[in-house]
Design a binder for these strands. Sequence first.
DNA 1: GTAAAGACTTGGAAGAATGTTC
DNA 2: GAACATTCTTCCAAGTCTTTAC
Length: 560
Amino acid sequence: WEEERYPEGIKWKFLEHKGPVFAPPYEPLPENVKFYYDGKVMKLSTKAEEVATFFAKMLDHEYTTKEIFRKNFFKDWRKEMTSEEKSTITNLSKCDFTHMSQYFKAQTEARKQMSKEEKQKIKEENERLLKEYGYCVMDNHKERIANFKIEPPGLFRGRGNHPKMGMLKRRIMPEDIIINCSKDSKIPAPPPGHKWKEVRHDNKVTWLVSWTENIQGSIKYIMLNPSSRIKGEKDWQKYETARRLKKCVDKIRNQYREDWKSKEMKVRQRAVALYFIDKLALRAGNEKEEGETADTVGCCSLRVEHIKLHPELDGQEYVVEFDFLGKDSIRYYNKVPVEKRVFKNLQLFMENKQPEDDLFDRLNTSILNKHLQDLMEGLTAKVFRTYNASITLQQQLKELTNPDDNIPAKILSYNRANRAVAILCNHQRAPPKTFEKSMMNLQSKIDAKKEQLADARRELKSAKADAKVRRDEKSKKTVESKKKAVQRIEEQLMKLEVQATDREENKQIALGTSKLNYLDPRISVAWCKKWGIPIEKIYNKTQREKFAWAIDMAEEDYEF
DNA sequence: GTAAAGACTTGGAAGAATGTTC
DNA sequence: GAACATTCTTCCAAGTCTTTAC
């Protein structure tokens, strides 16, 4: 993992790839699939029909009932219509997409019902595509590309209350594409009859392909897979920065506690914000352009309306009640007792302000990060999230792992430690649709197992009694085998119960993000080595590939 | 110094693949 | 071997932070 280091800013010397795979062209609907306007059949032009199919495919989704979605969609759809279509189709409510929708459902069904051979053929075609376009050569390594397929056109689905939901994501053409590769590489050829927007040779960046997306006007990239050298090294670096923070975090904490008393308002706000970022693992909270995205906030962009101050609540003093929408419009709700000084400062920050005013009006992420940079090289707000997540995992693993436990119980402990981090970082998920049912299934399995255990115990008891009377080898053997059976069933029962606990506790918690992005994998690798847990129980294949550097590096005594 | 553009990480959901059960 | 449940993979949106432009 420690190969030659490049000079500042240089990411590679040689980069060769085959360019992106474009979305398949639009296939018009068969003649018998009809679209109705105002109850009458209407044949749409190809362009208008394509956009209509995007809507039809989403018809069962809640999105299509939302006013903003419908409004945005209709506006963009009309832009694709011929002038006749435009003059006829004036009201979305009069459009009937149900026949189209049924057709697509039938198609999905047919795909499921395909024969083994047909499915195999599709699989092989995908593999061929992956083999040809899914890899690149960066310096001396053949590397997997993360997303070599260009995003197909469709309707934009923002998250939360997004003002642009329903807008048309246009089809990306070769003429939109910037290719990045090295001068001495074989430059990918554009599809016949087309050319690239640009071919450049910039080795100060890691991307292979980029284009500008039409909804937000932002740039999208094709980059390498997490298993690649370039991503792995960066990941490793990230955790090393977090470990450097570990060494100076006490000093930083003392510093911001001092700053709560500062004469300067800006310094006080900075210090309180940093306290939240450290204690609650809040995100930095960059400013966002109003009206362009859903209204979500992070620490620096908190508004007065997002917190409530309780001098006393449920027997605790100085409680701050947070209630706001964070990244991806996930709600953050928390009641936290804070130090008196913080509380008094918050009261001060809120004085004479309206609910929609910024809580930290003298602060933004760039001021905060500049300050952090002065405290430690490479320190930014998000390092606190990484640091606190990883240190929590390490400490929870120490606390929760019981040396006498068997492997499933130890894994439950691991999951619980992981869960503590996910809760800290507020990683939530919608409870799975089948949650209640699957819980019930598991419970009935447990009940059945319990009965089985009772039976086995009864049998053991009578075998013992029998052996006492008979006193022969055969009955002794029977006792032994019955004992073993009881033990085996006990173990199975325990495994099921552990599984049930784990699942119940995990109902609304998403473990994936913290596992993949916040927890120094060396902590997990060391823990596995220490307790003889196979690494496969903790990381699946993809995860093991991503964390190959850590699996290689960490020994059982690794300390974050 | 500030705003916009650019580059890269982080995020949950949906879809695909695989495993389990009857 | 079909139907259902679970796990893995893909998708692409939405953040953070850096760099560039003015």
